[in-house]
Amino acid sequence: MINKLKSKDLLGTKDLSPEEILLILDTAESMKEISSRDIKKVPALRGKTIINLFYESSTRTRTSFEIAGKRLSADVVNISVSTSSVVKGETLKDTAKNLEAMNPDAVVIRHSSSGAPDFISKLLRCSVINAGDGAHEHPTQALLDLFTIREKKKEFKGLKVSIIGDIAHSRVARSNIYAMNKMGMNVTVSGPSTLIPVDIEKMGVKVFTDVKKAIEGADVIMMLRIQLERQEKGLFPSIREYSRLFGLNAEKLKNAKEDVIIMHPGPINRGVEISADVADGKYSLILDQVTNGVAVRMAVLHLLTGGV
């Protein structure tokens, strides 16, 4: 058993070993227990400073990181794009250097440019945690997804996972594909051919444009959010048609295993990629994912800044 992570940063699941993934998940188990207490706070990260640097709007992830930090008694500072000096044209490099000068212990960054966390990690001595960069990675999302899957399924090995939607623009898909493959799951992706990126098979996944085939025998179905701007770019003709072909509803769900679980990184478009009855139904773990997100982020913050 290992007891710490190799890198000072968490930039993606691509660079994590299976042992590191298990370490994070196991640590998250005890973190989850903290969140169930009456007094949801431990002094583990007292005196540590965590900066949430968000260049894209986000409610769920930013709040989740903030709560995670606070439950561990860290001081958490939020910087979002509208209030920072970004609007004055400061470069990411200068922003990073300025934050460094204030001596934080971790910077959690979300950015629309793929590679932005890698970029600042080379400039900062402190830990950099990727909270989503462009279409590249969103490692804590994948880790909380794995945590949620393990809670229900106990084992990873041999599980069949179907990820459905806009794979091309999805950092959630990429982080999950890396992590799930490492843990021995079989991943299938599905979506309109215009939203399946080139050579995705080489990442070790099967591709089906027929959702029914993709879902067949699935233990886990992960739906991705579809963004309206993709339609404007001509990547699919209409929300109506998208929903008919790729939206998850009770009818399509019949092809999955009986004990299938349904996940979604949120925010969901009700009635578009997922019907309301399925989203709120008995197979859905969408809110469990949110709960577990806090625990997993506590684990990551603790492992990277807690001086284990």
């Binding site: 590679g115 960069d133 462009g134 080139v198 050579d199 995705i200 080489k202």
Partner: peptide, 12 residues
């Protein structure tokens, strides 16, 4: 556009 762009999440 190719496997590298897919992995890096960059538009090809």
């Amino acid at each position: 556009e190719g496997f590298v762009s897919t992995e890096l999440g960059l538009k090809g």
